[in-house]
Design a protein around this nucleic acid. Structure first.
Length: 618
DNA sequence: CATGGGTTAAACATCG
DNA sequence: CCGATGTTTAACCCAT
């Protein structure tokens, strides 16, 4: 029955994941190959069959800025979705076990009805799960078909390499593009994919046709590969153009029929060239996608609710969100008892009554309009704090992002550990509590536990700043702030360059600032602004950048330090080749610093708390 | 090129 | 014996 099927699916997925090995564990990675570019591949990544990319790889992808914003977006979303699925699996398994247990217990008692009830629940759940999956697929498919996912090699070059290292460049790029209205018609030869280019308002004169002809032909989205007729297969062994299917032009509202791919292409280039109409239609389509995403989000939410409900035995009223205070933890009282024992550690903040999620985006928006205009912050004595609390600001502000996105936080283990400890009421944590903090705060650490846990332990013992204190109940770890700071100074993390850039690129300042403000001001993803399909990380990104900048500005390049460190040696991506980044542009966006002014922090709500027991889910 | 910090792996020792 | 907790050592990577 359905149940079996679903299980099957889950198992399969699980298996798949297992097959995805740790991808180069940091060492041995093929030396040279790291910087070998070659476009095309990123695409394959973005469109890769739903397979969970190892965190490292993801990280790498993000940091290397190989992908276009859209791609990143999609990737992120995919990962999100997959994560969810994984969690579902987990949950499902647990649920199964539980049920099984109960079943056994009740077997004798013959509590038929109860069992049935559960059975029903299970089924419902199952359905929900499938539904979500379907939605996700649909959504992805849609995106792919739109051609919105195609990339433009040229734009992968980001002005702010040095700057954004630890951050996600996607939105930045997007923003940058939007703001400057870049019209790069970089149709370099290696431009293997070309979709609608919203960023270039004016028709790319000549080459358009040729390009389409040649590039579209390569449009091969394996997942969509339609066997189709073999008629003109000899030409393009695969005419699986997203806009062409079953001899019909799939352009929204078109439906023109064509016998062969060629004529279709012609039609496409003639009828759906880059003009106002097409653009408009494209936008509409984007909205459609948005709607889908929204729906997906809603369904996810529902699922979430269901899960929570089912798992939280009767104790429905959740511990109200606690205003944790990462920043002013100095005076922090007793918040967030590390002891709460919530049922299930989901990556997503369980249905907070807050705003209705829009695809991933709002869930992330960490920035409130306020933060921009006024630094509310009662806290944060800028200078000293910065010094003291390296990661806090960033962490705080991007908390939600990191909690949900499987992105490796750009902080060193030491910083994180310290943060964890300082955050605790007693300023001390047991190893296990530290683990829990990691998993709680970072989606990234909900995976491959063996690795990072080892790292955590390693760091604890390695750094003098972490002091072990014997305790009645074992031992706890504390931070020796002095020691910690002692080793800080030398890590500026590219600040110098940053600052320089910042100062020299005032030209773009205003524009960018405006852009940021705008984007921040409205948490709702602008439906119309170019192709920024739900940009979850935008806000946090902006914030991060701002932070970074502030830091840089604050102490010149003398020390800053915050979020620098990290950047772990990401293993080489074997399947991905990066594209040679344009040595060109680099310096524009930096100016967005100007927006500066310390952002405050927000209350953090810790909606759930997983604790003891199992730290990791995989 | 050398160096130091950060990350990851892994071997080992303790302890409950 | 096992697993969690700590310590160490080594190899890499990367930025300086």
């Amino acid at each position: 029955m359905a149940l079996q099927v679903a299980r099957q699916i889950l198992l399969q997925q699980q298996h798949q994941q297992q097959l995805q090995p740790q991808q180069g564990t940091g060492l041995k990675s093929p030396k040279g190959s790291e910087k070998q570019p070659s476009l095309q591949v990123p695409v394959s990544v973005a469109m890769m069959t739903p397979q969970v990319i190892t965190p490292q790889r993801m990280q790498q992808i993000l940091q290397q800025q190989v992908l276009s914003p859209q791609q990143l977006q999609v990737l992120l979303q995919q990962q999100q979705a997959l994560m969810l699925q994984q969690q579902l699996q987990e949950f499902y398994k647990k649920q199964q076990e539980q049920l099984h247990l109960q079943l056994l217990q009740q077997q004798h008692a013959g509590t038929q009805s109860k069992e049935q009830q559960q059975q029903a629940q299970r089924l419902a759940f199952q359905q929900q799960l499938m539904q979500v999956q379907q939605l996700q697929q649909q959504h992805l498919l849609n995106l792919q078909r739109q051609g919105l996912l195609t990339i433009q090699p040229g734009q992968t070059t980001l002005p702010l390499h040095s700057l954004t290292q630890g951050m996600i460049p996607a939105e930045l790029q997007q923003l940058w593009k939007e703001v400057t209205n870049v019209k790069e018609e970089n149709s370099s030869s290696n431009n293997s994919h070309r979709g609608l280019d919203l960023s270039s308002p004016q028709p790319p004169k000549n080459s358009l046709l040729n390009q389409h002809a040649s590039t579209n032909g390569q449009y091969m989205s394996h997942s969509l590969k339609r066997e189709g007729s073999t008629v003109d297969d000899h030409h393009h062994s695969h005419h699986s153009h997203p806009l062409y299917g079953h001899g019909v032009c799939k352009w929204p509202g078109c439906e023109a029929v064509f016998e062969d791919f060629q004529s279709f292409l012609k039609h496409l280039n003639n009828e759906h060239a880059l003009d106002d109409r097409s653009t408009a239609q494209c936008r509409v389509q984007m909205q459609v996608v948005q709607q889908l995403e929204l729906q997906l989000a809603k369904d996810k939410e529902r699922l979430q609710a269901m899960m929570t409900h089912l798992h939280v035995k009767s104790t429905e009223p959740k511990p109200a969100p606690q205003p944790l205070n990462l920043v002013s933890n100095v005076t922090l009282s007793k918040t967030a008892p590390p002891e709460a024992s919530p049922p299930l550690s989901l990556p997503q903040t369980p249905t907070t009554p807050t705003a209705p999620l829009t695809p991933l985006s709002q869930a992330y928006s960490v920035i409130t309009p306020n933060s921009l205009h006024h630094s509310v912050g009662p806290m944060r004595r800028r200078y000293s704090d910065k010094y003291n609390m390296p990661i806090s600001p960033d962490i705080v502000q991007n908390k939600e992002f990191y909690m949900n996105a499987e992105v490796r936080p750009p902080f060193t283990y030491a910083s994180l550990i310290r943060q964890a400890i300082l955050e605790s009421p007693e300023k001390q944590l047991t190893l296990n509590e530290i683990y829990n903090w990691f998993t709680r705060m970072f989606a990234y650490f909900r995976r491959n536990a063996a690795t990072w846990k080892n790292a955590v332990r390693h760091n604890l013992s390695l750094h003098k700043c972490f002091v072990r204190v014997e305790n009645v109940k074992g031992a706890v770890w504390t931070v020796d702030e002095l020691e910690f700071q002692k080793r800080r100074p030398q890590k500026i993390s590219g600040s110098p360059a940053l600052v320089k850039n910042i100062q020299t690129s005032l030209g773009y300042g205003p524009a960018l600032s405006a852009a940021f403000q705008a984007s921040m001001a409205e948490n709702n993803i602008p439906l119309y602004t170019t192709a920024s399909i739900g940009s979850p990380t935008l806000n946090s990104l902006a914030n991060a950048i701002r932070e970074e900048m502030n830091g840089a500005m604050d102490h010149g390049n003398s020390n800053g330090s915050d979020s620098s460190p990290g950047r772990s040696p990401l293993p080489a991506m074997h399947h991905i080749k990066e594209e040679p980044l344009d040595p060109e542009d680099h310096e524009g966006p930096l100016s967005l610093v100007m927006t500066a002014n310390h952002s405050p922090d927000f209350g953090h709500h810790r909606d759930y708390d997983d604790d003891q027991g199992h730290d990791d889910m995989l």
